[in-house]
Amino acid sequence: MNPTVIPALVAASVDREVGPRRPGAIYQNIDGRFEVLALVTDPREAAKLLRRDSARWAVIVRDTLRPDGQPFAIGSVWTTSDHLIREGKPTPVYVAAA
C-alpha cells in the first residue's frame, strides 16, 4: 500500500467514528444532551485527555441538561443511538502523525 494513502484512510476512519460531532454541534443520547466544544485529533493529546495508553481522537463536550455541566473528554464512537440536534462547524478531520 502506498504510504501516502494510510493517513487518508486513518482520517476517513476517524471521521466515521466521530460522526457529526464538530465544534458547535449539539447531540443527544441516553446519557444526556451534549454540546461539542472541541475535536482533538492529535493522538498523544487525545490519549492524555482520555487517560488511555493510546487514542486516535477525543471529543470535548459539555452536558447542556446540567446547569453545572463541566467540560469533559469522551472517546466513544458515533452510533445510531446518538441524535444530532444542531450541526456544528464544518471542520474536516486531520489526524496528526503518531
Rank of each mutant, 00 (worst) to 15 (best):
I6W: 05
S13T: 10
R22M: 04
G75S: 07
L49F: 04
S76H: 11
L84M: 11
D42W: 03
V95C: 14
Y94K: 15
D53W: 05
G24D: 10
R44G: 11
R86W: 07
G75Y: 06
A58L: 04
W78T: 04
R56N: 12
L37S: 05
P90H: 08
R56P: 00
G69H: 10
S76E: 14
A73G: 11
L39K: 05
D63F: 09
L37Y: 03
R16A: 14
V40K: 01
A12K: 12
A8N: 11
E87D: 14
F72T: 03
D53Y: 08
V40Q: 10
V61I: 15
E35N: 12
E45K: 12
T41W: 02
V95L: 09
R66F: 07
T79W: 06
R16K: 14
A46C: 02
R62K: 15
D15H: 09
L84C: 05
G75H: 06
A47Q: 05
P67F: 13
D82C: 08
A98T: 13
A58V: 02
K48T: 15
T41H: 07
V18N: 01
R56V: 06
P43F: 05
A58C: 09
E35A: 14
V95T: 15
I6R: 10
A55W: 05
D68N: 13
A97V: 12
R62S: 10
I74K: 03
D82T: 02
M1D: 06
Y94C: 07
K48W: 10
Y27I: 04
S81W: 12
A46W: 00
V5I: 13
R62L: 06
P20G: 05
D31C: 05
R66H: 07
A8V: 08
A55Y: 06
D15P: 00
P67G: 15
S76T: 12
D82A: 03
R22H: 08
I30C: 04
G19Y: 01
Y94W: 08
A73M: 07
F34G: 00
V95P: 07
G24W: 06
V36H: 01
V59D: 03
Y27L: 07
V61D: 02
W78F: 11
V93N: 14
A8Q: 13
R86G: 08
W57F: 14
R22E: 07
R51C: 10
V61E: 12
A46G: 02
R22A: 05
P23H: 11
P3H: 09
E87R: 14
P71C: 10
G19M: 05
I85P: 02
V36G: 01
I30K: 15
F34D: 01
R33K: 13
A12Y: 00
D42C: 05
R66T: 06
D31K: 12
F72Y: 15
A46P: 00
V77Q: 14
S76W: 03
W57L: 00
V95H: 10
K89R: 14
Q70W: 02
V40D: 06
M1Y: 02
S76K: 08
I60R: 08
E35L: 15
S54A: 15
A12R: 12
L39R: 07
A8L: 14
E87H: 13
E17T: 00
Y94S: 15
R62V: 15
V95G: 07
L9V: 04
V77G: 09
V10R: 11
A8P: 00
W78I: 02
